[in-house]
Design a protein around this nucleic acid. Sequence first.
DNA 1: GGAAAAATTTAGCCAAAACTAAAAAATAAT
DNA 2: ATTATTTTTTAGTTTTGGCTAAATTTTTCC
Lengths: 218, 218
Amino acid sequence: MYTVAEENYIKSIYHLQRQQQNVSTNALSARLQTRPASVTDMLKKLEAKKLLTYEKYYGCRLTAAGSRLALNIIRRHRLWEYFLSEKLGFGWEEVHEIAEQLEHVQSTALTEKLDAFLGFPRFDPHGDPIPDGTGKMSQQWQLPLCEWPVDKPGLVSAVGSQDERLLEMLSQKKLHIGAVVVVVQQFAFDRSLEIRLEDGCLVHISEQLGKFIFIKKQ
Amino acid sequence: MYTVAEENYIKSIYHLQRQQQNVSTNALSARLQTRPASVTDMLKKLEAKKLLTYEKYYGCRLTAAGSRLALNIIRRHRLWEYFLSEKLGFGWEEVHEIAEQLEHVQSTALTEKLDAFLGFPRFDPHGDPIPDGTGKMSQQWQLPLCEWPVDKPGLVSAVGSQDERLLEMLSQKKLHIGAVVVVVQQFAFDRSLEIRLEDGCLVHISEQLGKFIFIKKQ
DNA sequence: GGAAAAATTTAGCCAAAACTAAAAAATAAT
DNA sequence: ATTATTTTTTAGTTTTGGCTAAATTTTTCC
Ligand SMILES: [Mn+2]
Ligand SMILES: [Mn+2]
Ligand SMILES: [Mn+2]
Ligand SMILES: [Mn+2]
């Protein structure tokens, strides 16, 4: 139905749309690692296919059909990530790359049977919600660690990046999804955080890192 | 490393090479459903990459590197077929199409972990052997049903085609891999066969169909 | 409000992998 | 041994999705 290139554009636009309401050519160009001129060409093509609206010089927005497609690709991506992590034993820093390929395998039956085989998981290994067949996904109320109140226990609910170095660092600090944490104090100087884990260990987290760790209520 | 198109050529050449020792442009063209002119172009490219030797007007043969690649693609294909059939519950007539896409996902780690997860299966759902990481695969001595002796019980060991209509027909006749069969008689008129299954059922098999069912000793 | 900077589009080009039509070589048939 | 047929290659296009360089539009700054 759609090419790999088209699917990657649609997925990127969907993700960017949550920050900017009109996705700019440059933002896409940066995310997809292609030159702006190539983005312009593709936007015209995707508009012709009615997956998005595009206004010259002012960026694009997904149509309803475009959003549906995006959610379907994200569904496939996150189901495969869950499979790779839970069934094949990959680390959470390895799954994203491989899922980038698997997400483009076209077969509705495959997606549905995989979902059932996995037990209809609601969140992927990074804590991101997995859309269901109709595009709905569970929301969870969460805050970045650096905004979480001191002394109030919380659960690590998601990470806000796929950066392998970040994920590996979190693994080392035992900050996996579901870990219980308490912010002990925030240092005024650099706004870094000291947190305590379930086993009593104290861990130091830079402000930069704290922005990527999401916490929800216990 | 290699494109989907290149991998499909290498795989087809490998399969054709078992019949003709020099694979002709037309044979490839027929199998890949592309025009001969396109095949010629690709053969030159694959020769430049040292995956095959190619002599103008006389066809091609895989090099050692080409055979290694082919066996690796076949390994991926058959492992995915096994996964789809055993874990996801697809019928054996559905798995080939989907595996045609999955086989092109590039990740050695994925192949190896999938193999381990599946318990290192030696045969795919159609009875074809799965090459190991080094390209070796178990051979099994087998004969087409139409050459199997009368009254001697045997096991269905493989099917010689991926044709969905054939596979569905075999399922209906309960002729799955591992089924025990006895040839009761061969009709002289059209050389069709009457066979008996474990449960005593008598099944009639045309000569044409019998060529695609392989039998081994119990 | 107009100049400078930044963002975006246009125009022209390229590589991969397909195609058609015509030429050339190999094979088969008289 | 020619001729006819089949197979294969060459030459020239097309589509997809990239690219660079130049032109254009928008935004920012004085
Ligand atoms: Mn991911
Ligand atoms: Mn994820
Ligand atoms: Mn197959
Ligand atoms: Mn098979």
